[in-house]
Design a protein around this nucleic acid. Structure first.
Lengths: 188, 188
DNA sequence: CGAGCCATGTAAAGAGTTACATGATTGC
DNA sequence: GCAATCATGTAACTCTTTACATGGCTCG
């Protein structure tokens, strides 16, 4: 049981701990969740997850509760694991700055033709709209049976809906702004 | 001049190329920009940047145009570098899914007491408001002298303003939603 | 008995952070 | 001369992705 440095940077660790609060699960089980409901928030690969579960077990934050067929190992959260999860939830500040390669591109759109910049913005608008619709579909699929359950899941989903709406509106606005600027100063 | 694999994942590379479209600069110069106007979009460390400039030079996307005092090396974009930048801008799709450790925490807020979850949301609201104000201050500081210049910089800034406004509103809404849910079903 | 899913793992490389190290030049 | 700033670099580590490898179980 060796030490792990927990300084809050590593969220896959905490995602795994969080999922294990719902009950014991194997790496394979957890991977389904990462590819499913967590795909939009914190995607993870099989390789990374298995490695992390090994480290968590070694550090005593999870334990192997059962070894089943096909080498299946079922992991459960320990008290230390739950404590670490709560610590991360409440005491570690979420990352403030987030990299955006989309926005980075916007910064340099002056390098290409205005028509291409406009096309870029149109694609963002369409992409955001599409994403928004898929989230809306998700909401309608899960909402009925979980009326007052899963408050936090609904709150997270709402973030996605608002984010995609904001991005769509911004991209539409930016196209107008660009057109306006080019009109008044064609060398823009 | 060795080959570099450019599959669009690596944006620091393109951020450096983009900055060099504004004119030749040293690693040190570029670093000031990364810590300044690009800090909110694509932060970079000194270590990473110097390494990357070396690789870019080796790959022929930039060249050393001048060696000044204090070992200073000034880099300039090459035709190949500009072509790569344009390719990345227009033909490589921006990352769709972005990890959010903030949202990941929201997913697991059920693990802690509702009062702590509420405090978490209040902090998000306050943080977003503060961030929004600092962006607004930036806008007011740069807007006058750059009326019709730097369209794309203003468009990127607007994204930040809209994003922080959205996050503030969402966090406020989420607090109400949480209170509502707990009221109707105290075991939440 | 073979296709397909269940289940775990390793290896290698890319991308990013932190810490440390070094030396030159400018300005007081 | 000494402090601050300019300027570059290396080493070690963490996190993430992609690819490859292996084998067990189930069902038709």
């Amino acid at each position: 049981m060796s030490r792990l440095e927990y300084d809050g940077r590593m969220s896959l660790r905490h995602a795994a701990l969080g999922l294990l609060t719902l009950g014991p699960a194997s790496g394979y089980d957890l991977l389904q969740t990462f590819n499913g409901s967590l795909a939009n928030v914190w995607p993870a690969t099989q390789s990374q997850l298995y490695g992390e579960l090994g480290k968590l077990a070694e550090a005593g934050l999870v334990t192997v509760t059962e070894e089943g067929a096909r080498r299946r190992k079922e992991y459960a959260l320990t008290d230390a694991g739950l404590a670490e999860l709560k610590h991360w939830l409440i005491e570690v500040e979420p990352t403030a700055v987030r990299r955006s390669d989309m926005l980075l591109r916007v910064f340099f759109l002056g390098v290409v033709e205005p028509a291409q910049a406009d096309e870029f913005l149109r694609k963002r608008e369409a992409g955001a709209a599409e994403y928004h619709d898929s989230l809306r579909a998700t909401e309608e699929a899960i909402a009925p049976e979980t009326a007052d359950l899963a408050v936090y899941g609904r709150i997270a989903l709402e973030w996605g809906l608002r984010f995609t709406a904001m991005q769509r509106e911004w991209a539409a606005w930016a196209q107008e702004e660009l057109a306006r600027t080019l009109k008044s100063q064609p060398s823009g």
